[in-house]
Design a protein around this nucleic acid. Structure first.
Lengths: 242, 242
DNA sequence: ATAAATACTTTGACAAGACTAAAAAATAAT
DNA sequence: ATTATTTTTTAGTCTTGTCAAAGTATTTAT
């Protein structure tokens, strides 16, 4: 009876749990199709995976493939959710991913819009030991290059009281902490405008007519961005500015 | 007609080419069994792979699996060799591998006997871009943590005139440049004795009776090692010492 | 209330990689 | 030179992960 640990944590299982976790942040219950779309696999394959992770593997094609315990709650046609065990796994995957992203930025000069490809590939190749060393080398960072929190080894999630840049009152200063958009083009254009993590900004004007916002950066620079993009920028309110 | 490049460079193909290259350093023509043993796969699987890489894929089970051009010369029952194209690929795999090993040592504090597991996993997950950045971060190193040369991007192999520590005349001083043994236990014990890369040593005595060598390290330290191990230690002769 | 549209599941298939068993070729021994 | 042994190859099978197509369930709109 081989006890080779974690042999069930294949690439596709880890991707699945991570993606499910992220989708759950927005929708309380996640549908097969949402998952299939996010994972770029067919709905049929998604159903397959869900059933395996719910512990209903028997009937299917998928050999034995034993998972130690169910990782999701699932009722057919009714969507799927991570249970406590599944969430633990998802958080550990997310931790590794975000540490890798931070490493690529800080030590290898990647821009925040160039991370996806390489992080995807490394994510499943980094051992626990290397993950720990990366965390140490980076000084145990709490946030990744997009400002997303990096779960700790025990599964705690660092957090700050953040609001959307779009929701800031006019005149209020704040510091950019997180950008939820992942589109490379958007990230690049934000960086070009100077809207990067830890940058202090002040909301100068809200133009409801054409759905734009004008913000001040430093004393002289003034930039205009769309309301839609501003909603994806999470900021920490800051009492004084300049 | 999709031109997705390098989709044929799977993990097993890269491992195969790398291993074949290393075996060729010692034996001019490499047998199926040698490869099977080194790769830890069955001889039958090895034959399969050889035939695919030689461009003889048709008859077999292996779907289409198109390789752009043959990478090995092969005559059945007569062994296999890399051709020029295959050697180029092998060297690029080896470069990536050795850069990774150097990175793990220099930035993540791995000892030279701890590299194998993690390097094996990362080897196939590092993109060309990341490989270039690693090389830059490390200052374009010429040798890996065991002293093996790191091929350049153009496939050149840095070299020095080295001899085995076992072949040194008594009294001769030299600098340790490479250790060919990969066994973790041996590497660890060498490191414990102080026999590490770049360390200066002088051969004090050769004891033919019990096949051992005695070497001086610095002024005071004297250590004894077996002739067998000494043969795997490549050194650069050094005119003066101390 | 029922037809149409949408969402989900099942079935069957395929590809890559690896294995076992048995046949064939090459090498060694008598 | 013939037989025995070893090595290599062939043939067939298994596992994991993927997809397409067709069938079933649920929801929506009229």
């Amino acid at each position: 009876m081989k006890t080779e640990p974690d042999s069930w944590r294949t690439r596709s299982v880890e991707d699945f749990l991570k993606t499910l976790y992220l989708l759950q942040q927005q929708h309380p219950s996640v549908t097969t199709n949402q998952l299939a779309h996010a994972l770029h696999i067919a709905p049929a394959s998604t159903t397959d995976m869900i059933q395996r992770l719910a512990g209903l593997a028997e009937a299917n094609n998928s050999g034995e493939f034993s998972i130690p315990e169910p990782l999701v709650d699932y009722r057919r046609y009714r969507g799927v959710r991570l249970n406590a065990a599944g969430e633990r796994v998802a958080l550990s995957v997310l931790r590794r991913r975000r540490l890798i992203e931070q490493l690529l930025c800080r030590f290898f000069g990647y821009r925040w819009d160039e991370l996806d490809d390489d992080a995807d590939r490394l994510e499943h190749a980094v051992s626990v030991r290397l993950e720990q060393r990366i965390a140490a080398l980076l000084g145990y960072p709490e946030f990744d290059p997009h400002g997303d929190p990096i779960p700790t080894e025990t599964g705690d999630i660092p957090s700050e009281a953040l609001v959307s840049l779009a929701a800031l009152p006019v005149g209020q200063a704040a510091i950019i902490r997180r950008v939820d958009d992942q589109t490379p083009e958007v990230l690049r254009s934000l960086a070009n405008l100077g809207l990067v993590l830890e940058r202090a900004v002040r909301l100068r004007e809200r133009n409801e007519l054409n759905d734009t916002l004008t913000v001040e950066l430093g004393t002289w620079q003034v930039e205009t961005i769309s309301l839609r993009v501003a909603q994806t920028i999470a900021v920490k309110r800051f009492p004084t500015y300049e």
